[in-house]
Design a binder for these strands. Structure first.
Length: 196
DNA sequence: TAGTGGATGCTA
DNA sequence: AGCATCCACTAG
């Protein structure tokens, strides 16, 4: 599993390192495993970061311990899941934008099922698929809980080293502030939105 | 391109 | 206080 210490590093290091790691979700007795294929970094001093204007009740989890979750509600319908980074009292996190699931959750609505592997591509869809909402905000990402992270497998790391996998670094999605920062990473051929 | 609801930032 | 505006999104 991924430890708090591992997350207690510069957000710009953690975000690309999370690509290829696995997000594990326990849901109704079922274990869903998703390969993380797209992330974005939200850093201290970053105008696009929710923590930029200081700590508030809604963004408090970003200032909490590294390795915990930060889940927020947006556009009246969606949730987005982040991994808190850097030391306690530092407001920063990595947004998990897309995962590739090993299998589809049972009991999934037929209208979503036809999306197949793309079902968790996009931060809002990811949370909908894994049933993540603000009840998961601020929780420790540890085995034994409902949500945790696991390191890259040696197979994935080997493919990365052999360049059979390629990490693409580019700009973040949907921002009006600090839009020029290249703080988004995705696994080549797996972006949640077409690259620009 | 509309539309969801909560948070934040104005004005008073 | 109250009201307007913003918003790291998605479906169609």
């Amino acid at each position: 599993m991924i430890s708090a210490e591992w997350c207690d590093r510069n957000t710009l290091e953690v975000a690309p390192d999370l690509i290829g790691c696995t997000l594990v979700r326990q849901l109704n007795g079922e274990t869903l495993r998703g390969l993380i294929v797209e992330t974005e970094a939200y850093c201290p001093g970053d105008p696009a970061c929710h923590a930029y204007r200081g700590k508030t009740p809604s963004n408090a989890a970003m200032f909490g311990p590294p390795g915990h979750s930060y889940v927020y509600f947006i556009y009246g319908m969606y949730h987005c899941f982040n991994v808190v980074t850097e030391s306690l009292h530092t407001g920063s996190a990595v947004l998990i934008r897309a995962i590739e699931l090993d299998h589809l959750p049972t009991g999934l609505d037929a209208k979503y099922k036809k999306q197949g592997k793309r079902i968790a591509a996009g931060p809002g869809k990811l949370c909908r698929t894994l049933a993540i909402d603000r009840s998961q905000n601020g929780v420790a990402l540890q085995p034994g809980h409902q949500l945790w992270l696991e390191h890259r497998t040696s197979e994935f790391q080997a493919k990365l080293d052999r360049r059979q996998h390629t990490l693409v670094q580019t700009t973040r999605i949907g921002l009006s502030k600090a839009a020029e920062q290249p703080w988004r990473w995705y696994l080549k051929d797996h972006p949640s939105v077409s690259k620009t």
